[in-house]
Nucleic acid binder design. Structure first.
Lengths: 90, 90
DNA sequence: ATCATAGGCAAGCTATTGCTTGCGTATCAA
DNA sequence: TTGATACGCAAGCAATAGCTTGCCTATGAT
């Protein structure tokens, strides 16, 4: 299992999580398109693919292949580690 | 205001937050000592000082000077941004 | 069978990060 | 006032991260 903190450290990766929060189950190309349209992200497909690999290693994204596409699904469960580790005092 | 995600990305900085969670209001030298004793961290004083600066810029640590020492206090409030941004679904 | 689509792999480059080193400043004790 | 303690500043260095480039594989359509 990878490092969720390192995965969250990159702003593009956080925007990918934002997109999956809005609309889950996107393919790589769909994520590329939405990031460019809605956030002005200009990264290449390979860059996004590498970001998705980091997110997947951290357990924040689960994937499954459907035909020649790959569906990416958000999994926020690992974020619980953060609030368990440093309790948020109001 | 700095980037809390980048601040959390480094393992030494996370251990600093751990120490402040156990015992709050430590000085730089106390943090250095406890990190070395309890976690086997071998970083220099300057390295820890730079880490604390990053944590302070991110708002995760507040400081106040007392004589010639500097008291570091944990502030977990910025962590709320994380759970607000990506709701944790059980 | 041919071609286009969706994605993977790996090497190379550049910017950033974390660390060290050396010196400087402020506070306290003697 | 002299010395020791606690910390700050800034330049330099090595490791890492993110990105690009080029080529490859697999699935689906015609």
């Amino acid at each position: 299992m990878g490092d969720i903190f390192r995965a969250l450290a990159d702003p593009t990766r956080r925007q990918i999580l934002d997109e999956l929060t809005i609309r889950d189950g996107l393919t790589l190309f769909e994520i590329c398109g939405r990031l460019m349209m809605l956030h002005g992200v200009v990264s290449s497909r390979q860059a996004i693919s590498q970001h998705l690999a980091v997110l997947e290693e951290a357990g924040l994204v689960h994937t499954r292949r459907v035909g020649r596409t790959k569906i990416h699904e958000l999994n926020t469960a690992p974020l619980r580690e953060i609030i368990d580790r440093w309790p948020i005092t109001p």
